[in-house]
Design a protein around this nucleic acid. Structure first.
Length: 473
RNA sequence: GCCCCCAUCGUCUAGCCAGGUCUAGGACACCGCCCUUUCAAGGCGGAGAGCGCGGGUUCGAAUCCCGCUGGGGGUGCCA
């Protein structure tokens, strides 16, 4: 059975790059009817927090990624300890008593000489007696993995192809810190092996780690899984997408009101392309059916916010069911301080869903449907001050008195006013728009009148009329 | 510095593995027109890469090989 996993560290919000890794890993497992594991890598106690972990799970769930098993590395320290001891016993690892300061010194010296730094191996050659003595003295020690000399580790990456790395490039590396906590390169192997992970799917920044891990698999006698290293996601300036590029976490886009399915869909389009040419819109189920690691591009992709927003808009106007859209929209409406009946929201969105790309922008655009009090923009005020506007409003109020204000009726009235006052259509509509929405652009005035209760339409018009101090006669 | 990865329109990409059908296809963004009470949306059309550069191999290369350049990543008792 195929088993894949996503192994984030809870040291921040879920980054778009990590989210994509999670998605690909998830799609891969589901495609093969396998198991998908979520494993929180919180061995760095300095930076990991429970709060970040909570949000990580929340964001993954929001994206529609569900896991079959869940683990937290901080719950498993005993397991790692056992395997670390095993490695020491078998001679694959050894205690290192070098202090952080000493190592810093080594590194600095290497840098000055301009030679690549590797751990000197000072403690590699300690005798049993020396080791015991130092331990007895209570000197803290880390555990290092003994890297064999002159070994070239080779593996076939599913995405990158043949990769060969000479392990002489790095020295003996730490697998257990002097405070007793295990490090990433070690725990990742123990966990992946014990959890039966068959395919390790992760960012390409892990390629240099892979040979180290393969060495550990071998030392522990575990079968080596298959690896697939995804290219990184870049920012506009073609450097790795990071905070300085602006909004880079799933949460950022969630809060902006980007549709979850659209974000999932968009992220898949970064680096992966479907076998069927030309199509770009896929449901999660379709993605599961179509996704193949072999179809993932090996070159990095630049994140394009515009296209994400376009896709979000597409989902809002034609992919989501109206019911889903309403459910997604209401929290944003409430967040902005508006209240409305679900049925009313439904009627509004049915007519207006084709005019915004994010739910947040939607609330902004649809304010006239929900706001009690309007604020007038400067431009709108200027229109209202036109001499013709007052006459338009006054006439409209007369003509609207005893009729039902359907969109069609409003259009007819506008036309009639235009004729009677000898105005351009634009002048009539501008006056109505300014009074009813406070803006000169936005949703159709006829749609607004169609849905907004008549008394509110009339009161807005009256208010605008009073505002400009209209005197009858 | 050293190690590794990558290289098709501004961006995401198809094509590359099995060389000719590619005067390189699609999408976002951009420009124009249409629709129209505005902004969007929608419809139609346009511009935009000769495939980073240089060598090979071949009758023929975006596609195969080599070199270079450029970009990215790694180089931690972070993950």
């Amino acid at each position: 059975m195929v088993v894949s996993r996503f192994a984030p560290s809870p040291t921040g919000y879920l980054h778009l790059g990590n989210a994509r890794t999670a998605i690909f890993s998830y799609l891969f497992a589901r495609h093969h009817g396998g198991k998908f594991i979520l494993r929180v890598e919180d061995t760095d106690r300095e930076r990991s927090t429970k709060e970040f972990e909570r949000m990580l799970l929340e964001d993954l769930t929001w994206l529609g990624i569900e896991w079959d098993e869940f683990y937290r590395q901080s719950d498993r320290f005993d397991v790692y300890k056992h395997y670390a001891e095993k490695l020491i016993e078998s001679g694959h690892a050894y205690p290192c008593f070098c202090s952080v300061e000493e190592l810093e010194e080594e590194r600095k010296r290497a840098e000055e000489k301009g030679i690549p730094y590797r751990y000197s191996g000072k403690c590699r050659v300690l005798t049993k007696e020396e080791m015991e003595r130092l331990k007895k003295e209570g000197k803290p020690y880390a555990v290092r993995f003994r890297v064999p000399d002159g070994r070239v580790v080779v593996f076939e990456d599913i995405i990158k192809g043949h990769i060969a790395i000479n392990v002489d490039d790095f020295g003996d590396f730490v697998i257990v810190r002097s405070d007793g906590t295990p490090t990433y390169n070690f725990v990742v192997v123990v966990d992946d092996a014990l959890m039966g992970v068959t395919h390790v799917i992760r960012g390409e920044d892990h390629i240099p780690n892979t040979p180290k891990q393969i060495l550990i698999y071998e030392a522990l006698g575990f079968p080596v899984p298959k690896f697939a290293h995804l290219p990184v996601i870049l920012g506009e300036d073609r450097s790795k997408l990071s905070k300085r590029h602006g909004a880079v976490s799933v949460r950022n886009y969630r809060e902006e009101g980007v549709v979850a399915e659209a974000l999932l869909n968009y992220l898949c389009l970064l680096g992966w392309s479907p076998p069927e040419e030309g199509r770009e819109v896929f449901s999660k189920e379709e993605l599961i059916a179509l996704f193949k690691l072999e179809d993932v591009n090996s070159s990095p992709a630049v994140f394009n916010r515009d296209k994400l927003l376009w896709l979000s808009g597409l989902y809002i106007r034609e992919v989501l069911s109206l019911d889903r859209l309403v459910d997604e929209f209401i929290p944003f409406l409430n967040e902005a301080g508006y209240r409305a009946e679900k049925e009313y929201v439904r009627r509004v969105l049915e007519k207006t869903r084709d005019s915004f790309e994010t739910l947040k922008c939607g609330v902004e655009r649809l304010k006239p449907f929900f706001a009690e009090e309007l604020e007038y923009s400067e431009e709108a005020l200027m229109v209202l001050e036109n001499e013709s506007s007052a006459r338009v409003l006054w006439l409209f109020l007369q003509m609207a008195q005893d009729v039902e204000l359907s969109g069609e009726r409003v259009k007819a009235i506008a036309k009639e006013i235009q004729k009677r006052l000898g105005l351009k259509a634009k002048d009539v509509w501008h006056a109505l728009r300014a009074s009813l929405t406070g803006e000169l652009e936005g949703v159709g005035v006829d749609i607004l009148c169609d849905i907004l209760p008549k008394e509110r339409v009339l009161s807005r018009l009256t208010k605008a009329l009073n505002l400009v101090g209209f005197q009858q006669g």
